[in-house]
Simulated assay, not measured.
Amino acid sequence: MERQEIEIFLTLAEELHFGRTAERVGVSQSRVSQTVARLERRIGARLFDRTSRQVALTPIGEQLRDDLAPAWRGLEEAVARAMAAGRGITGSLRVGFSGAFTGHFLHSVAEVFTRRYPGVDVRIRQVQISDPYGPLRAGDVELQVTEPPLAEPDLTLGPVLVSQPRVLLMSSAHPLARHGSVSVEDLAESTLLTVAGNVPAHWLDHHFPRRTPSGRPIPHGQAMTHWEDALSLVLAGKGVTPVAAAGAHYYSRPGLVFRPFTDAPGIDYAFVWPTGHETARLRAFVRTAMDRVREAGGPERAVESLWTDGITGA
């Protein structure tokens, strides 16, 4: 099998969509179809069952994928290491994160990255919510994963790494804890914990609104400077706060309840870096991360893939 044939087959086995496969590999959709047909003639069996509505691997296709994928990853990593040496991708890369689950996923990315680029020392650290962009601007980290929106001219917003439904964190004694779900309108009847520090006003307004969609005022309570403050304040009955759904997996403990919103937008966690300071190391790490996201099934499945793969959370 030629290199492009393997790449097309494995990409289609992952995407199960001819159009997306063509886009990722950088060929026409007809080239994907011709390549698959050629492979099937050579093997003497169908690799994919395809209809007008869906594409699925046959048992023989699944076997070929499972046999080829490890060797292909090894080949890609060997080529990446050679390219890294040739381009001088060495040194250290400091990466920041704002939530335990994004940090967990970044560590899984770093494992793949260091195999591909053994000359780079990746160091991952948490960034406090009270100063979300301070470490980037100070040079303490070169790359960060944090929640948009971003309206900072000196910072560049990159691709989304993780996307999560938004839920409301509250004490089990809170009246809303008896409900299976909540609405943004319910915040008018609660005290909303917010964030203090060097935090842009537009970011606060997005994540901690002062009014419901119908215009009712939302009472604001104590402002947090560290994420851990939210857990103790909620447990003490001082208020409620919106969080990502993955928080229920990472921060669950007696007395805390997580209830999904029926009408609030989800929370994205995207790469951010200082504008004009995009290095080869940084670009390579982002590429590796987005490869990992695609393997997981997209930003919506990124964190959950760690659990299903048997990688325990912090």
Rank of each mutant, 00 (worst) to 15 (best):
V127N: 10
G298V: 02
S305Q: 12
V199I: 10
S172I: 01
Q164H: 10
T241Y: 00
A201Q: 14
A245K: 07
A245N: 06
G86F: 13
P217W: 07
L235N: 01
A56I: 06
M290E: 14
P209A: 04
E40C: 06
R301G: 02
V109L: 11
A110F: 06
R41Y: 03
A230D: 09
M1S: 12
R116T: 04
G276E: 05
Q128H: 13
P135L: 07
L93N: 08
L176G: 09
A223R: 15
G197V: 10
I129A: 11
H207S: 00
L64E: 07
D205R: 15
A82L: 14
F261D: 11
P219I: 10
Q222F: 10
V167C: 03
T312H: 10
R292I: 01
R116H: 04
D131W: 04
E77Q: 15
R287S: 14
H226C: 05
L204C: 06
T194D: 03
L161E: 01
A248R: 12
P200L: 07
L57Q: 13
P213A: 07
G103M: 07
A196H: 05
E295T: 12
W273F: 13
P153T: 04
R125P: 00
H207D: 02
E76L: 14
R287V: 03
M83L: 15
I129P: 06
R253C: 09
G99D: 14
E278R: 15
A173Y: 07
E147P: 00
A71E: 12
A230G: 12
E185F: 00
T51D: 15
H174T: 05
V112C: 09
P209E: 03
A110E: 12
A302S: 15
E228S: 13
E62G: 11
G247D: 13
A188Y: 07
V122M: 06
R292W: 00
A22N: 09
R253Y: 01
V36A: 12
S92M: 08
L68F: 11
T288S: 14
L39T: 12
V182T: 00
A270D: 02
R137F: 02
G99C: 04
V25T: 11
G86M: 13
G139N: 05
S181D: 10
T288Q: 08
A289D: 08
R283M: 05
T58E: 13
E152H: 11
H202Y: 15
